[in-house]
Write a protein that binds this DNA or RNA. Structure first.
Length: 423
DNA sequence: TCTGGGGTCCTAGGACCC
DNA sequence: TCTGGGGTCCTAGGACCC
């Protein structure tokens, strides 16, 4: 049986989330900001029309914001993840085989649905998600993931498509390819776009028709796969079960520059705790961890950055062990006379919690401690992060990342959950 | 004053082994 | 002077994604 893929993509996802509960944000330009309220990372259509770009620095946009009364929001990831789950729940009614591709995109396997019913099916998906969650989506359908992506992009752009485009065995496929800039292809970034265009390949049709060996030699197997997919040969499968993560990192810029060792250690402990929580959530343990510190590379201050590698004798996800080692490392890395902007942690060697290699000279972690940590996790899950925590971890400090214009935690607190009325 | 934070995959080249 | 060949593992760097 031929494969059929759909890509369902939430439109301007973070902005759409904010609009679900705050009606005053509808029909006016809205932007959502990165950590520390630094960059624009999501824009409503109205904001796009005003010229806001992804990655614009907010401090350069003040005039435009004032002039057009643009609503400016800090990001609220806990809330976005929650709405993301709701969208996926609705999608699961339309296909048992789903890949959660990113916070705002899902691939669905629609194999078996009759060709002539595909577009209508797409429209039903779109309507139901919007009615049940309040989030507008676009749907692209094709014989491969690349083609579904491409169809999705066109569905967003084209007024005629009204948010749904099916290019599966379509007589208009070539037209769709021709209308797609080569730089808009999934897997073609800035570098490849430049290379392709300087070789006279400007759209997806020209890319599909380029000699295979040339594409392979200039863009490795990655490019070759994209090309095959455009020809309708599926070589990127649906990943229903996410593969185990190979790296787990935590890195956040501070809300201000830190110059004392005391505060840097406090931040280190707090980030190490976050890292431990991430590991525990995935049931993984860290064997090797890289810790780095960095001054503000945009500033005119003297610059310094350095990193240290921690090897745990036995892989662990116990916050107190990780915190201790990370704080020690930061003591070594710290140099007086610099102002630090960020700390990063990156667990590069991981082991599954239930098959950690034991060390000859170290006692295996005692199960009492494991049980205690599990209870702490559960409490924090129910009552909010930080309810119970190691003493060195702070929840309120002047160096913390800023989210000064954050919306209320509409759906992610136990108390005061408002009900959304949609449709 | 203010410039994100996660991730993945692929390849080439070096070290090392037989 | 000639300077194997095949295999594995690791790392750094470059490309990409959202």
């Amino acid at each position: 049986m031929d494969k059929i893929f759909a890509l369902v993509d939430c439109n301007n996802f973070y902005v759409s989330c904010e609009r679900v509960f705050d009606f005053t944000l509808r029909d006016r330009p809205v932007v959502v900001l990165s950590n520390n309220d630094g960059l624009v990372i999501a824009r409503s259509n109205e904001a796009k029309a005003l010229g806001f770009k992804m990655g614009d620095a907010v401090f350069q946009m003040h005039d435009l914001i004032k002039e057009h009364q643009v609503a400016v929001m800090s990001s609220n990831y806990a809330f976005y993840y929650d709405l993301c789950d709701r969208v996926r729940e609705v999608l699961s009614h339309f296909s048992p085989r789903i890949e959660k591709y990113s916070i705002d995109e899902c691939f669905l396997d629609l194999s078996g649905i009759a060709k002539e019913e595909l577009e209508d099916y797409g429209r039903r998906i779109k309507a139901k998600v919007e009615k049940w969650t309040g989030i507008p989506v676009s749907v692209g359908i094709g014989a491969t993931k690349c083609l579904a992506k491409l169809a999705n992009k066109l569905a967003k752009k084209s007024v005629k498509a009204r948010g749904v485009l099916d290019v599966y065995k379509s007589p208009h496929l070539e037209k769709a390819l021709e209308a797609t800039d080569v730089g808009d292809l999934w897997g073609v970034g800035q570098a490849y776009e430049g290379m392709l265009k300087s070789n006279g390949i400007n759209n997806a049709l020209e890319f599909r028709n380029a000699p295979d060996h040339w594409v392979r030699s200039r863009m490795t197997v990655v490019g070759a796969r994209i090309q095959s997919e455009l020809k309708g040969v599926s070589c990127i499968g649906l990943e229903e079960i996410p593969p185990l993560q190979k790296m787990v990192g935590t890195a956040q810029g501070f809300g201000m520059l830190i110059d004392t060792l005391e505060e840097l250690k406090e931040a280190a402990a707090t980030y190490a705790n976050k890292e431990a929580i991430k590991l525990r959530k995935q049931k993984q343990c860290v064997k090797e961890l890289v810790v780095w510190v960095q001054t503000n590379s945009f500033g005119r201050d003297p610059q310094y950055g350095n990193k240290a590698e921690i090897v745990f004798p036995v892989a662990t996800n116990d916050p107190s062990l990780i915190i201790k080692k990370v704080v020690n490392a930061v003591e070594m890395l710290y140099k007086k006379g610099y102002r630090y902007k960020r700390i990063g942690l990156n667990a590069t060697k991981l082991e599954l919690e239930n098959c950690v290699q034991e060390h000859l000279f170290v006692k295996p972690e005692d199960t009492k401690r494991q049980n205690l940590l599990r209870v702490v996790d559960q409490l924090n899950e129910v009552s909010g992060a930080g309810t119970i925590r190691t003493a060195s971890v702070v929840i309120d400090a002047r160096w913390m990342t800023r989210f000064s214009k954050q919306s209320p935690h509409y759906t992610t607190k136990v108390k005061d959950i408002p009900i959304a009325r949609v449709g």
